[in-house]
Amino acid sequence: MGMSVGPGAEDGGVVPEMNTTPLIDVMLVLLVMLIITIPVQTHAVKLDMPAGPPPPRENVVEPEVITIEVDFDGTVYWNGAVLSGREEMEQRMTQKAAQDPQPEVHLHPNRLVKYKYVAAVLASAQRLGLNKIGMVGNEQFMD
Rank of each mutant, 00 (worst) to 15 (best):
P7D: 11
L112V: 07
V76L: 03
Y117M: 04
E64A: 05
W78F: 11
V32S: 07
G2Y: 09
V70M: 04
T42H: 10
Q95Y: 06
R57W: 07
P7A: 12
R127F: 04
G13R: 08
P55V: 14
V65W: 02
N79C: 06
G129P: 03
L28F: 09
Q140H: 08
G52C: 10
N110R: 02
L47G: 03
R86D: 15
E104K: 05
T21S: 11
G52D: 06
Q126P: 00
G2N: 06
D71A: 15
L83Y: 04
V65S: 06
A123V: 09
N59Q: 08
M49W: 10
Q140T: 12
A120T: 13
L83V: 10
F72N: 06
V32F: 11
M135N: 04
A44P: 00
G129T: 03
N59I: 01
V26N: 03
Q95T: 15
D100P: 00
P16S: 12
I66E: 01
F72I: 08
Y77W: 11
T67E: 13
E69I: 06
G134T: 14
N110P: 01
L23Y: 12
P39Q: 05
L83H: 03
Y117N: 12
I38N: 02
V70N: 00
M89I: 03
N59G: 14
Y117R: 00
V105L: 14
Q95K: 09
K132F: 15
V29Q: 06
V113D: 00
D100K: 11
G8M: 05
G85I: 10
Y77C: 02
V113P: 00
M18Q: 08
M142S: 13
D143C: 02
E104Y: 12
V45M: 07
W78C: 00
M33F: 11
E87I: 11
L47H: 07
M18T: 15
V26F: 07
L23H: 10
V5Y: 09
Y115F: 07
A81M: 06
S124Q: 04
Q91P: 00
P50H: 05
P16V: 12
W78V: 02
